[in-house]
Design a protein around this nucleic acid. Sequence first.
DNA 1: GTCTATACAAAGATAGAC
DNA 2: GTCTATCTTTGTATAGAC
Lengths: 195, 195
Amino acid sequence: MEPQATVRDRLLDAAEDLAATQGVTATPVDVILERAQVSPATLYAHFGNKEGLITQALRRRLSRWDTTWQECVDEAEGPEEKVLAIFTALTRHRRNLSPSRWCVFLGIAAETARPGPDLEETLLADTRLLTRRLGELAAALPDPGRADAVAQQLVLIYTGVLGMILRGTDADTAIADGRRIAAMLLAAVGTQDVS
Amino acid sequence: MEPQATVRDRLLDAAEDLAATQGVTATPVDVILERAQVSPATLYAHFGNKEGLITQALRRRLSRWDTTWQECVDEAEGPEEKVLAIFTALTRHRRNLSPSRWCVFLGIAAETARPGPDLEETLLADTRLLTRRLGELAAALPDPGRADAVAQQLVLIYTGVLGMILRGTDADTAIADGRRIAAMLLAAVGTQDVS
DNA sequence: GTCTATACAAAGATAGAC
DNA sequence: GTCTATCTTTGTATAGAC
């Protein structure tokens, strides 16, 4: 975004921003190029093709999400609050970056029928990060034996929040709803069998 | 699907099936035409354009989902089971129709950046149906004053189930997880404040 | 109403110069 | 590494005949 940003960064910024707000298929290469003030040949020299650019932009975004989320976890006090920090992180993440229509990863997964190996791997990495970290955080709760199952349910709730934003629900409302459901789930863990 | 189906029905069948499995943007008109064994001009005579065809296919599918869901509600016994019938309905719906990658409505909403008025209205109708019927069913639970809030949370959970399928989770697993979370939510309603 | 053939537009990618 | 100019493919839609 800086005036003196490298060509590569300008391309990544433009691709991420447009993919987040308009979607990938709705964003022709020309539009990315115009936004980035770069010529076609340069894009292809750097990233090979459109999907390569998108993939790199996603990787950078995932890394930033990872950082933001970890910060929120670190700031939270107590096992339950650390689990619920994902919702604080989502709010912060959406404030920091160009606001996406809902979730860039799910969005691209939804609109890309046959992703290449690199893109597919990157899309899966998002789900893996969610599952892994939520699993780790859930292991600090009572009944660590159910950590993986709880993590799956938390990913579901988190995914539901994002889906509600796509449905048109205000983001803050959806996030608050999701946090409430998750808190209820955590309250049930350890106090009763949640088979 | 029948050999003697009308041209119109063949087009709707092909469009629905391909949109559900491949996505809309990944499905060129030519492929729909070949599947339906129909010529281009016929499609445009009937539906105006590609989006018109997709819109009509979605309306038909929403109507079938409506029916399947209502059947499952009618079969269920007791207020809580009637609310949870949405998960039984989802299983049945996916078995009846051509299996979709996740949710045809959310999928098309995700990949269609600027839908025309008719398509947009049809996509919203899906969310409206969910909210309305879940609200009605939730009104039969203890604390009917919270029916609308509970309905919103149930739509979130249901949407999360669909999103998990997009993430690669087995559909039956995702549905079972969603039902469990929803059951927990219902158990909390009336017994405690779920602010 | 339906077909064949074709027009028109959009989009991804490359050639060749600097 | 980057640009200008252009090629090729793909995809939506229509013209005109039957």
